[in-house]
Write a protein that binds this DNA or RNA. Structure first.
Lengths: 332, 332
DNA sequence: TTGAAAGCGCTAACAA
DNA sequence: TTGTTAGCGCTTTCAA
């Protein structure tokens, strides 16, 4: 009460100060409406304020056996659009008074395991896995955790795993179809990770669109990578100064910009001599010249909807695709 | 033991399984070396594995009165370089077996308060405030929290607050000085937030460098903003197609790119008719054409060092500047 | 080297 | 509407 150094003030102190029991304090502070009178509530809140009381989260979580935290596992490298998704997540979390705990991991086992264990150990109330491809072992770890979870910006075959993502097959298909309608018959597709389901789906969409237009695909129009700027740049370097294709789809914004820069290094006019389009549609496509036509994914909404579904498992669809759009700009 | 549904396994179950007391289990699992024999330890660990035991973080934190979590408050808008800083933080956190909890906030009171309360309520062991400018009330809240904390990528006058940042005065000075040495005498400085200490310092450095070269500054060479692409773009629009300046410093990469694009819209040749340089030096400066000369900040290292200092308060300097470098590219 | 037991701060029966 | 009390799962004296 008078002592020199600051003790942490507990519910007990507040109870004493307000001259009620700790149970009452607990009820008031947890807003268990109906279980206390207004006067008491006021007294308690005043006392709490006066003492500078802060609820001890660990204690609450221990006794309730759950935490008001949503865990997000995100790749640190593919963070170009992750921010937008996370903002969407945060916006919903804020409304529900939840905290968001973000952990970085890669497409690599150790960090994933570590992140997962951290989250599971904290009994977070939900886990969102954002654009990272879990190893089989970690997938099992998560699935067995009994913690509600959902994958964002990653889709899976079948309906075992719940995800909220863009339909990458359709992305591949429609990007290609758009270019075909523009008159292109020889189209490159570059920098996707063909070991990922996303990459495979985009390729499949691309191939089907070509086939639907009765166009034959040459295998070296397809140049894999890891969605990076450098992969796009290198892919274009392989196409050369007199490319066999008249249009190239970069499977990420950075990749498409890589293509663009290398094309310009070759002296190719975009879009006259080479059309380029991009998949993602972050702000980056607007800061390069010419601005890139893009498949624009609704990342913010993806975060919002994924988070919302995580919180309402009963009404949520098992999995869901978020619509994307095609924004025509100056590169096609 | 046999029942259909999975109960959460506690230290007690492990103790029974290994036929020791819970105290022993606790000691083994907390690696209190010297307080148990090797055989016992082995038995305990086996039992824990067999049962799939996971330590309950809330319980640990409740009893030890501290958590193995570092809280990071970050702006969601200025996230261009935040990722790099966060990666630096994570790398150190990983080594020390700490979790990092990232909360988004803005230069706006409510979200800040919320984020701060969340962190304080969890008794995190440290807080890193990353490039967000706390309001006075929230500054007080944090300072009074008794939780170790540090500001990253933000500096302050005086030595009250501990920070790890770049020396923005020097950044402003050296960027300007470099252009002067290149022969420029009329230099613009655009898009910094002049309400922020960072912005003020950069302007001060700029002015002093000009003065040192006996150059007079015209006030409309200085065009404030919020470090955004649009601010850079607009600033250049104000300079016009026949700008009064021969060089412009964008106070962020995005701002500088805005300047670049508007300059090119005017048909100005860069760097021949207008030199442009950028402050930050993220990957963005390399994907535009021409590539931008930049003051390159060591963000990753900033995160690493800031985090390290947070963990070793006794040996850490009160505040520290992280060296930056000047990378000459094609825009000057 | 091990065990018994107290207690971290809080919630939630149960009673009153 | 309020109070009493039994834990939540763990760490840490204290004793053995």
């Amino acid at each position: 009460m008078k002592g020199g150094f600051v003790m942490t003030v507990t519910i007990k102190d507040v109870a004493a100060e307000a001259d009620v029991s700790i149970a009452t304090v607990s009820r008031v502070l947890a807003n268990k409406a109906g279980f206390y009178s207004d006067k008491t509530a006021a007294r308690v809140r005043e006392a709490a304020d006066r003492l500078g009381y802060r609820k001890n989260t660990s204690a609450v979580e221990l006794v309730t056996q759950k935490s008001q935290v949503i865990g997000v596992i995100v790749s640190s490298t593919k963070t170009n659009f992750s921010n937008q998704i996370i903002e969407g997540i945060q916006s919903v979390a804020f409304k529900h008074d939840l905290s968001v705990m973000i952990l970085y991991a890669e497409d690599e086992g150790d960090l994933q395991t570590r992140a997962l264990r951290t989250l599971i150990g904290r009994s977070v109330m939900g886990i969102l896995v954002l654009a990272v491809q879990l190893t089989d072992a970690n997938l099992a770890l998560l699935e067995n955790s009994r913690i509600p979870h959902r994958y964002l910006s990653t889709s899976f075959k079948g309906d075992k795993l719940a995800f909220t993502a863009s339909d990458d097959y359709q992305i591949g298909y429609q990007a290609t179809d758009y270019l075909i309608k523009k008159g292109h018959q020889r189209i490159g597709l570059v920098a996707m990770d063909v070991n990922s389901y996303i990459g495979q789906q985009r390729v499949a969409g691309y191939r089907d669109a070509m086939k639907a237009a009765q166009l034959t695909v040459s295998d070296d129009w397809i140049k894999p990578g890891l969605f990076t700027y450098q992969d796009g740049f290198n892919a274009m370097a392989e196409f050369g100064a007199e490319p066999d294709v008249t249009a190239v789809i970069g499977t990420s914004d950075m990749a498409a910009i890589g293509v663009l820069n290398q094309a310009q290094n070759f002296g190719l006019k975009v879009p006259e001599q080479l059309a380029i389009m991009s998949i993602d549609g972050t702000e980056l496509v607007k800061i390069v010249r010419p601005q890139l036509t893009s498949i624009t994914q609704a990342f913010y909404e993806m975060g919002q909807r994924g988070m919302t579904h995580l919180l309402t498992p009963t009404t949520a669809p098992a999995s869901e695709f978020i619509p994307f759009k095609l924004d025509e700009r100056s590169s096609t």
